[in-house]
Nucleic acid binder design. Structure first.
Lengths: 247, 247
DNA sequence: GGCTTCGCTTGATCTGGGTCAAGGTCAAGC
DNA sequence: GCTTGACCTTGACCCAGATCAAGCGAAGCC
């Protein structure tokens, strides 16, 4: 097993200004023209809703920077986040006209959008893009399944620790102090959004954050800036296997 | 909105003896020879383990009949089911050598297997199969996200009702009495497996089943045979939107 | 027949996290 | 400087579901 990988494990094209793994223009030069013709950018600010479940959605998109969340809401208002999209993640489903989930920007956000119909045409003509999309979807399914273990079986404290480790692993803006091994990053979610992610209430999220802070597992600078003195100590709180993978 | 669809909504090829949507030999006559050459059948009995997480897995497969479960286990024994495979569902991931989850047969089970390497070759040469696999994976992702809402936000009673309605919808062996509207089927899972599916204990599953029975929402004939006098009454217990979809 | 095992049910009790309520902190706007 | 509102923290209390424990019924086996 290699040492813990913290930086951007899923992105094929971290150096690409448009970080869409599925359709990175730099990596697929032959598709550049197609893509350039149908792509455009959209910006949202933190808290804005991008689409509501059931809305027509005439585009698919790739997150350039910022964070977006997919959430489901029950009639009585109970909410569960079911997807968290970080830079390079893909939003939308080809062949589906309407959104299935509410999509909101949890931070300021830039999307690189593609009109859905021509994107779909491109899928049909350039097979390896749909293969790449398949790979990404399978990755997302694995993430969803890890998330299900978290929702179904972990304690509140384990949920918080797991969430922090997931963000730490995936956040490209993280910076790790090479000497001390300390890591630091900003939470891209409010306490309420964290609660929706984790299947908790915001009060429980707050209490458990305080608990981890009291026990020295994390430091809190302001409400949103997290410092992790020792990542292994955090990992011990997640309930996950120590080596984070299959032997 | 069409009337409630109960029979086999996901299978493209319900009439095909091999019900694999991804690679149905009947529907894709041109691939018949490829597939015939690399396919073989395996049978398992209820309770048998097919692979353990971390094992080498040199095949992918399609469920012909019976039910298989994917589960994750934590070090201290807490278990969460993360996938339930019914006839026509696909098992395994091309490009992945080792299993990520424990796979067990929860009923007697027949798989139609394809050796992984030649299957992967076929994916590369016949693009529409990978497109079909993408569609199926996206469906599974949607199912996982509905499951996440269940795990994160539903009460025990709602979880049980949701589970029963999911099985009722998908089980091909269900038979609905056209006059009375009654539906009946056998549970493909033990109480313990249901608990692992729902993020509950088996005691709570048992109690809630008794509760639904007491309230006339279901009838129990033996331990495993379920009769649903009125599907709409069951749906009212799930916490889901009445019309089961987007307006 | 008697014994064991497996799957399930039911009861009594406990507890983690939900609920309700109050108050703190900080930035923006007047 | 004061007010407002968004976001967060903390305390007191409660309850749904977990835990612990006993027992049932049917199938399989000696």
């Amino acid at each position: 097993m290699p040492q813990r990988q913290l930086a951007f494990p899923q992105a094929d094209c971290a150096d690409c200004p448009i970080r869409h793994r599925a359709v990175c223009a730099r990596c697929e030069a032959d598709e550049l023209e197609h893509l350039e013709a149908i792509k455009y950018y959209r910006n949202y600010e933190a808290g804005q809703t991008i689409v509501w479940a059931g809305d027509k959605m005439d585009f698919v998109a790739s997150v350039v920077h910022g964070v977006a969340a997919l959430t489901q809401t029950m009639e009585d208002g109970r909410r569960q986040m079911v997807g968290l999209l970080l830079p390079s993640d893909f939003l939308g489903r080809p062949n589906r006209e309407r959104a299935t989930y509410d999509v909101t920007a949890t931070t300021d956000l830039q999307l690189c959008c593609f009109r859905r119909a021509p994107f779909q045409d491109m899928l049909n003509t350039t097979p390896h893009v749909s293969q790449r999309l398949l790979e990404m979807t399978l990755d997302e399914l694995d993430a969803a399944r890890e998330w299900m273990l978290l929702l179904g079986r972990k304690t509140a404290r384990e949920k918080i620790a797991s969430f922090l480790s997931i963000i730490a692993r995936r956040d490209a803006t993280i910076h790790q102090h090479s000497k001390t091994g300390e890591m630091a990053f900003d939470l891209p979610l409010t306490r309420e959004a964290m609660a929706d992610y984790l299947g908790l209430t915001l009060e429980t999220v707050s209490r458990q954050m305080s608990g981890l802070k009291r026990d020295g597992v994390i430091r809190l600078e302001g409400k949103r800036h997290i410092v992790i003195p020792d990542f292994d100590v955090l990992m011990d709180e997640t309930g996950d296997d120590a080596d984070g993978g299959v032997f």
